[in-house]
Design a protein around this nucleic acid. Sequence first.
DNA 1: ATGTAAATTAGATTAACATCTAATTAGATG
DNA 2: CATCTAATTAGATGTTAATCTAATTTACAT
Lengths: 193, 193
Amino acid sequence: MQLNRLVIFYKTIGDPTRLRIIKMLSDGPLHGQAIAGKLGLTPATITHHLKKLRDVNAVYERRSGNTIYFYLNETVIQHYAKALMNLAEQDEVKKDMKDVMAERQKVIENFFTSDGRLKNIPAQRKKKLIVLEHMLKGLQKGKKYEEKELNEYIKKFHDDYATIRREFIINNYMYRENSIYELNPEEMWAKIE
Amino acid sequence: MQLNRLVIFYKTIGDPTRLRIIKMLSDGPLHGQAIAGKLGLTPATITHHLKKLRDVNAVYERRSGNTIYFYLNETVIQHYAKALMNLAEQDEVKKDMKDVMAERQKVIENFFTSDGRLKNIPAQRKKKLIVLEHMLKGLQKGKKYEEKELNEYIKKFHDDYATIRREFIINNYMYRENSIYELNPEEMWAKIE
DNA sequence: ATGTAAATTAGATTAACATCTAATTAGATG
DNA sequence: CATCTAATTAGATGTTAATCTAATTTACAT
């Protein structure tokens, strides 16, 4: 269901008169004059609202003698109610993702100072990888780094650049060829767990 | 839940910009500028819409550093979606009632002419009771009828007033004392099935 | 065919509201 | 305390739409 249909439906429903009509029709069909009478409005006004309700298939009509009875189309309304539920529902994958991101954030806050320096290298592998990946974010994909240049970059985070540079290689985040360093594509990285 | 809350909620939802915001937030929280950027609108406009979404509790916010992240409140939305379903749902009792009334109507159309005369007395008990009750509608509760007066009334429907008058008594719709007739209270009437 | 009761349409009025620009506030961070 | 960024408020503008009255159409009933 495209968004626009939902908008039109809920805009239609989001009106006191029309919602009252829906409620009344859920007790059984009524003809126009009866609706006008109960709501204290003109038949013309009722026609106006019924047109909108018909436009979104919320009601249908059936003639009996000289007067037209309007029926509520329950099915259609259930349908739109479900569509709204689905729209607001974030699937499980996304929920998991949110948890993961929250955990990473906490680790990063624990191991980096407020000005962005690494306090120390975590002993726990999982946390260590999070910290390493955080530092890697400042490097460009595809760019080739001289060893000296890479050291300078790492020193912004921590003095022991040698250890950290080694960790980058060990964990497959980067590869080295003739003392030239480059980021590996993400699908080659060390995975947590 | 009173109708007015529903109206306000659906009116809020029934706007293209706000529905798009909801959809975006269902992928995870965002801050105001991000929303404005993605929708190509001014931050002021986003504030306007977020205010309305907050008014109905569709979103809540959490500050992180200098920027405020807006979260979708899934629960509330599910809640209103269900309220809509309930509103449109006519309960089983009413549905049964409708069926019963439709059946009675059919019987009456079959056994009475268009000018309201009884063609003949149904043989089937169920249908006979429906027909009798239809004729009883013209009598007043609590009023005492002379036998002659009652006969005249019945003759408007059918010439064989004697049989019909007897049926009124047999089926407990009326009682007789010294040739004076009166309607019984409805809870004493013959019941179908 | 003609009349009648209900429904619809047309047009006018008024209120609500989505959006913008410009000015202001709130809060974090140095 | 000073500054910066994000969010909000204020006010203006144009559009949408809810409602009415009056005129017209529809289609059943006589």
